[in-house]
Design a protein around this nucleic acid. Structure first.
Lengths: 110, 110
DNA sequence: TAATGCACTCACTTAAAAGTAAGGGGAGGA
DNA sequence: TCCTCCCCTTACTTTTAAGTGAGTGCATTA
């Protein structure tokens, strides 16, 4: 018996709301990446947080994790088909956020 | 010298990301409300969190706080004109979140 | 006189998120 | 042989967010 305890806006905030999740997704939109690539692209993230956030996103079905049984093993993270449905949402959020940052800048400059 | 340190998506998440903020805004979209009204409409929020979130939203320019110097003083919170620009964003977020909740429900039911 | 309503604030505690540092297992290279 | 790379996990600490409970000042109501 599962029922929705959260408001849908909170659901989305929960999915995107980790400190590094927007950045991770930003890089995965471009192309799939390996753990190490993401570490390099996001310099300040710790390995712990990167793997935790990737597991969160995987659990939500946003990213796919593909293991190539090569030697050494290669693990690739990519945006799933379902994850791609987040792109237009992120664009709207991004547009508002950009405008808000500008607004705050003007405010503090005045 | 202020520069944007945050990605715009994070900015939006910061603005909406408090535990009770989406709920507060949801009620203010409908009509302006007094402190007490909001307390009744959101039964589990504490006075501290309600006033803290209202102050956050006010600082970001999302809500207006109007004090009527009557006796007893009456304080009304309403969505500002700027705050109304959040409505379409919230709708997009909401639609995605609703779909995600359904998806998770199905998943756990299977 | 005492109690209630309004709109809060303050001090303190608890819980959740993030950061830090170290380790591990297996293969290839110096 | 020892080091390095890859992809993490674990234990511990710090920081941040949220919850708890009491108190404030003024005025009306019972």
């Amino acid at each position: 018996m599962i029922h929705q305890r959260e408001c849908p806006v909170e659901t989305l905030i929960h999915v995107l709301g980790g400190k590094w999740k927007p950045m991770i997704l930003w890089h995965l939109i471009e192309s799939s990446k390996r753990f190490n690539d993401l570490e390099k692209l996001i310099p300040d993230v710790s390995q712990k947080m990167l793997s935790q956030h990737l597991r969160d996103l995987e659990r939500e079905g946003i990213v796919d994790r593909t293991i190539y049984p090569t030697i050494p093993p290669k693990v690739e993270y990519s945006l799933s088909e379902y994850g791609k449905t987040l792109i237009p949402v992120a664009e709207v959020m991004c547009a508002w956020g950009e405008n808000h940052n500008k607004r705050k800048y003007k405010e503090s400059a005045s």
